[in-house]
Design a protein around this nucleic acid. Structure first.
Lengths: 190, 190
DNA sequence: ACACCATACGTACAAGCGTACACATCTCAT
DNA sequence: ATGAGATGTGTACGCTTGTACGTATGGTGT
């Protein structure tokens, strides 16, 4: 019997009021970037990941570039914050060295998603001026954190070494072990 | 009558027989990747850069992925060859160190295009298995070249350091000077 | 209670994409 | 010289994309 349909036959999207949706969209964007790369990141893909309609994207963001910029800013901030915390907690140079080793071994190499995000940001920044600003602010901040314990030259070299170790490990078939990371860093600072 | 048109009224593309076109297309692809990034690399863009009709792309390559793979293979080969040459010419460890410094300062940081291409390859490889093979072969080859003069551990660390220095310099507002490069490398090998 | 308006939604559209394919033209073994 | 096969060309098609926009809805100040 074609009785009265007590529930709508096609389950219409129920949620209307959704404060903080913009934030969720930025998070969803980061997920999509990590999974599909910047090239595979589209309005539709982000909307799907956040389970919101397509129209919601154009309401909250003026363009796709704006989404990317906000997403990468959030990513850079969160990585930089960990950097700051770990290093400002170190009381002396030796503790700082340990902090750096932990940082690379656990925080950077451990979080596969963050790692991919960083490399994606690097190349996106090469083409997009807005993102280059984000990258440079991030680099400046991490270098500054290192300069709490090391002189400027050492800080810069260490920053580059870390970058190389992380990237190298990320793409290699056999990632470097924590012991190898420790060896490389201690050798440079010795 | 519509008299005999001695020359085609619209200046048709004149060149037909063009051996080696495939090679030129791969070179054009590298140019486009360097200028617009992998994301901005399309059949049409490559064809335009090489000044050939669109149809030529599908004749010479089965897919766009095939073009990318061939292009990156060529790029990796040419960089690796320079690596090999420079290092095999070095007679002792000191000469090898000088070779590495020259390599980074001049060959890698000097050629802005190659540098961008390398980073593009890194992220493309993160997503495309065929390209990951290319990257890994390249890394293995450069590490092997370093192992002519340094032990395995040092070679790997040096490889990572180089990667970091290059990437860091590429994205920074103030690129590292040759003296700074020399300092960083010598410090690690000291 | 009620009107306002920020927010949410669905859909449409032009542009650009990869690819396919029929047809034109050239080279070369015979 | 000539036919066959390799190579080159132009165009069309189906699809996805970013973005725009008219309409619906519900929280909030009054």
């Amino acid at each position: 019997m074609s009785g009265p349909t007590p529930r709508s036959p096609v389950p219409r999207r129920p949620r209307r009021h959704d404060p903080g949706r913009r934030d969720r969209l930025i998070d969803a964007a980061l997920t999509v970037i990590a999974e599909r790369g910047v090239a595979g990141t589209t309005h539709r893909e982000i909307a799907r990941a956040a389970d919101v309609p397509l129209g919601s994207m154009t309401y909250h963001f003026a363009s796709l570039d704006e989404v990317l910029a906000e997403a990468f800013t959030r990513h850079a901030d969160s990585v930089a914050r960990v950097f700051d915390e770990r290093l400002s907690a170190a009381r002396d140079r030796d503790a700082a060295i340990e902090a750096v080793i932990t940082l690379v071994s656990d925080d950077l190499l451990g979080a596969r998603q963050d790692l991919v995000l960083s490399v994606e940001l690097y190349v996106a920044a090469a083409r997009n001026p807005a993102l280059r600003t984000v990258t440079q602010a991030w680099m400046a901040r991490s270098r500054q954190a290192l300069e709490r314990h090391f002189d400027a030259t050492t800080a810069r070299e260490l920053d580059a070494l870390i970058e190389g170790l992380v990237l190298h490990s990320a793409l290699s078939t056999d990632p470097m072990t924590p012991e190898q990371i420790r060896h490389a860093i201690c050798r440079h600072l010795r």
